[in-house]
């Protein structure tokens, strides 16, 4: 009797495993479908895309010309480097500045620290639209409508969330380690850069990734700040203006989109473990 029951149980589990696997595959196909269809369309001629939008490219309609054409019209190489430059400098500054501020706010337990921290936290509620127009006006006066100005703005918008996240992490690090370092003769800069920063490594990676994804994909702010400097346009800006001129040419547009999405997917494959664990651990605290 017991034996039979056990058999049924393991049989059920095996069946369940297969069932979940199948459901998973179906859902995965639904999730991946838009990316897949974008990729497959981007290798078809305009005529081929019109006649067979759903099938994979075949001998008759396969082409690489879409990529050639999109590559030059997006000015891909330059735009990619612009995006990379602006993202990297902004993120390095945000991470460093936020770590410094968060550490000082945790370790100097004064009323002022509390007020500053609360201001950072509350300010995250302010939608971008509230500050966008005055910021644009001021930036024009003080000559900040350029990449340097844009980077400065990313730092200003980025510090509040980053400080709050790092603050939460530092609170859980015992201060004794730092006190021991001071007894050993560390000055405050050695203490911060050689003792504290290495302890923050995990959270700094998470903060960096959050900011990278935001800044790399951001469209509205650069469209206001550097759109008048064509040599500085980032990938989202080029994509937007590309669609203004070629909205009916889906053969070119799919190639352009796929080229812009690909770096994000590659970056994700490389950083997936930090992203997933960072968000999962951080979400319920």
């Amino acid at each position: 009797m017991l034996n039979i029951k056990n058999n049924v149980k393991t049989g059920g589990r095996g069946f369940k495993g297969i069932l979940f696997f199948l459901i998973g595959i179906i859902l995965a196909l639904i999730y991946i479908f838009p990316i897949y269809i974008l990729g497959s369309s981007s290798f078809k001629t305009q005529k081929g895309l019109f006649e067979n939008p759903l099938s994979l490219p075949n001998k008759l309609n396969f082409t690489l010309n879409n990529y050639k054409s999109a590559f030059s019209r997006l000015n891909y190489f330059q735009s990619f480097l612009n995006s990379l430059y602006i993202t990297i400098i902004s993120v390095v500054l945000i991470v460093l500045i936020s770590a410094m501020a968060a550490w000082a706010l945790v370790r100097y337990k004064t009323k002022i620290s509390k007020i500053i921290f609360l201001t950072f936290a509350i300010s995250m509620l302010i939608p971008f639209q509230c500050t966008m127009l005055p910021l644009l006006k001021v930036a024009r006066y003080v000559n900040l409508l350029n990449p340097q100005g844009l980077i400065f703005m990313y730092v200003g918008y980025g510090v509040s969330l980053s400080v709050v996240i790092i603050h939460g992490f530092i609170k859980n690090i015992p201060e004794e380690i730092e006190e021991a370092a001071i007894v050993d003769g560390c000055n405050v800069f050695q203490l911060f850069f050689m003792i504290v920063l290495p302890l923050l490594k995990i959270i700094l990676i998470t903060v960096a990734i959050i900011n990278i994804m935001w800044i790399w994909n951001d469209f509205l702010l650069p469209s206001l700040i550097i759109n008048n400097k064509p040599q500085w346009r980032t990938l989202p800006l080029m994509t937007f203006s590309f669609f203004g001129s070629y909205s009916r040419r889906w053969d070119l547009a799919t190639a352009a989109l796929f080229m812009c999405i690909l770096p994000v997917i590659l970056f994700y494959m490389w950083s997936q473990k930090y992203i997933i664990s960072g968000i999962t651990d951080g979400s319920i605290k």
């Binding site: 201001t119 500050t131 966008m132 005055p134 200003g156 510090v159 509040s160």
Partner: peptide, 10 residues
């Protein structure tokens, strides 16, 4: 940077 970019424009 926070004052100049967020608070004052707001």
């Amino acid at each position: 940077s926070f004052l100049l970019i967020v608070v004052i424009p707001a």
